[in-house]
Write a protein that binds this DNA or RNA. Structure first.
Length: 438
DNA sequence: TCTGGGGTCCTAGGACCC
DNA sequence: TCTGGGGTCCTAGGACCC
């Protein structure tokens, strides 16, 4: 596995494009009142500027003449693409983790895996990357697993190159502080430290049950394995997004309801634009809400059908807002959509250009049927064999998936119920017999 | 000038189902 | 009459990453 991490990436692109900034401290990040540092050049780091630090703090630390820039994300993403294309020449298995970070499965690329060949390969990659990007540098780690490769690139940056030979993983790992393991942040670090675990060697001495008790099932067993360099996670190219969101911190806290609702509209628009561009739709809307005192809460609602329209997202988010106490003012609002599913366009619904039903009514859980079709309805106590034909409706939402909506009593007179199922033999024209579902 | 914005994964409780 | 054990889905919050 190879891990590549571009050095002080945003700042490096700025220094590439503006020669006057080369060799000087550069800080990229929010320049407004409530900004935070995204990237500090190594020159700025010498003065103590760090990622995630408030811009004000960075200004206090850096000398006059430091460049504070807002960021040009189009330029970063263009440069990133150049690098990722280079990586894809090495192997078909490339997993991009972020704009400035990726894993490459070198074995799948058919490369010789001895230390000398790998070192030469990494050296060559670093040079080509530098040339192709016009001056950006990166750190490379190569090891038998993703975690070790990432640790390798981290250990030798900037402009690093570290190959960890197979068999020497534990020698590299054990002296390291646990905090340097990916996934061990401030909270986990403190918990481990409270029981005397500071290095990976300390971690290695703890039993699986100890660690699970300390930090939970998933994290505990993950750490247990990590301490043993036991990591077989594959490189996964083309990960599908699971959620899309947009949020904004306001220069001054918002209090006016009409303003808040207007802001929700523009956030919803940003989310939906990306949703539609990706040809995807979601079922859950989440509203994120940060008060003047930085306390943060989220409220979410899941609808029965996937949606990708602004109206639905904005309406649901506004309803969620209505249930939150806004006294004191709002610092940040966010709108997100999750439960994403890509839908296939124009297949089984050639005559119906809108495969996804209009969901306005769904928000109130009192839907009007779009397409009505007679379907069997089951009543409590009724033998399935003798179920009457009642009115329900079917809405297809994609290939081989049929959702049937039942109206009327099930176990008791009550709300509308929805059933959905996947079946390769299913077609919307031929709904399944949902009576067997009870 | 206190604390961005975009994500992922996990946990825990409750509702509900078989 | 008293009360199970497996499971899924939803919601809210938290840790973590870049």
């Amino acid at each position: 596995m190879l891990h590549l991490d571009l050095d002080a990436f945003f700042a490096a692109v700025e220094q590439r494009d503006k020669p006057s900034l080369r060799g000087k401290p550069v800080v990229v990040g929010g320049t407004g009142g409530r900004g935070v540092v995204a990237t500090a050049s190594y020159e700025a780091r010498a003065y103590g500027a760090r990622s995630a630090m408030s811009s004000g703090e960075a200004r206090r630390r850096c000398p006059p003449g430091t460049a504070f820039l807002g960021g040009r994300f189009a330029a970063y993403s263009l440069t990133s693409r150049v690098v990722m294309d280079l990586l894809r020449e090495l192997s078909p298995l490339v997993e991009q983790v972020s704009v400035d970070e990726a894993y490459v499965d070198l074995a799948a690329g058919g490369h010789a895996l001895d230390v000398e060949s790998l070192t030469a390969l990494a050296h060559d990659l670093k040079e080509r990357l530098h040339t192709a990007t016009g001056g950006v540098r990166g750190s490379v780690g190569i090891a038998s697993s993703k975690t070790l490769a990432k640790i390798g690139s981290e250990l030798d940056k900037p402009d690093g190159l570290l190959v960890i030979p197979a068999g020497s993983e534990l020698d590299v790992l054990h002296p390291l502080p646990v905090r340097s393991l990916p996934g061990v942040g401030p909270a986990t670090g403190d918990r481990l430290s409270s029981v005397g675990v500071r290095t990976v060697a300390d971690l290695h001495e703890r039993s699986l049950t100890d660690l699970v008790t300390l930090v939970g099932q998933a994290h505990g067993s993950g750490l247990y394995r990590l301490a043993r360099a036991d990591d077989d996670r594959p490189v996964v190219p083309d990960r599908e997004a699971k959620s899309v969101s947009a949020e904004r911190t306001y220069a001054t806290d918002l209090t006016d309801l009409a303003t808040l609702e207007h802001e929700i509209g523009s956030l919803a628009q940003r989310v939906v634009t990306r949703l539609q561009k990706d040809g995807t739709a979601g079922r859950t809307v989440t509203l994120k809400f940060r008060r003047y005192d930085f306390t943060t809460l989220t409220r979410s609602q899941t609808l029965t059908q996937p949606f990708d329209d602004v109206r639905t997202v904005a309406d649901v988010a506004r309803r969620l807002l209505a249930g939150i106490d806004r006294t004191g003012g709002v610092r940040l609002l966010g709108v997100g959509v999750s439960g994403l599913a890509t839908y296939v366009q124009g297949d089984l619904f050639a005559e119906d250009p809108e495969p996804v039903a209009d969901l306005e009514e769904d928000i109130d859980a009192v839907p009007e049927p779009e397409a009505v079709r007679a379907v069997p309805v089951w009543h409590p106590g009724q033998d399935v064999e003798h179920a009457e034909m009642g009115r329900g409706w079917v809405w297809g939402s994609g290939l081989n998936r049929v959702t049937v909506r039942f109206e009327g009593p099930r176990t008791a007179p009550g709300p509308v119920r929805t059933y959905a199922g996947d079946d390769p033999d299913l077609s919307p024209a031929d709904p399944p017999d949902w009576r067997s579902d009870g």
